[in-house]
Amino acid sequence: MALVELRNVSKIYHLGGEEIRALDDVSLDIEAGEFISIIGPSGSGKSTLMHILGCLDTPTKGTIQIDGTMIQDATARQLAGIRNRKIGFVFQFFNLLPKLNVLQNVELPMVYGGLSARARRDRAMRALQMVDLENRSKHRPMQLSGGQQQRVAIARALVNDPKIVFADEPTGNLDSHTGEVILELLRKLSQEGRTIALVTHDPEIAAVTPRRIEIRDGKISRHIDPKLAGQPRVEPVGVSV
């Protein structure tokens, strides 16, 4: 059984009486340990897909299973719990809390997880070591460079040892060199066995991942998977893989 199983998922919005299918009958599996990218231009539905995969949103139709739990009908409280324990987010704008220092930012998911202060500190320091920022633990986010902030955000995403990490345009707000460093860090984490999903509009960035899914108009338009015969090929629209 795959880590994430998406089956015939649709997300439909109603905007002024008009029906918008942000996701249209998408099926997708992500295995544990995979490094996968979700590519698509803006408005393609890739963000909606990430939100549903990341338990920030629930589908209108279809089923989704993450780590053995069906979540399409979960309550807001259950979703918050799953986000807290099984999912890590890395955002384009870093989304660190400016009033907290680096260590406190990294500790934040564990605060909601209910860990003791001591355990929180130890684990947060270990996560900061992973991104090489343990000596900046008392700094405020504003005192760090963009790349450092993003590394703090990665540490925060990893600190609860999630099953899967979603990185939404993690290089979008960085210069190309710093972006490279961040991508390199993600690749390293993937090699250590982490499951990482990279969401981007840029095919060049998506190229770092072996498996790539292209979204267009709410559907999977292209699927590149080295495991499937090793050749890139075009998938028929809407067929599950």
Binding site: L56, A80, R85, F89, N95, L96, L97, Y112
Partner: peptide
């Protein structure tokens, strides 16, 4: 609002 969004994304519940 953004802070609240961040807190909810990383697992803060309604109650929190």
């Amino acid at each position: 609002i953004r802070e609240i969004g961040i807190r909810k994304a990383i697992g803060a519940t309604f109650r929190d």
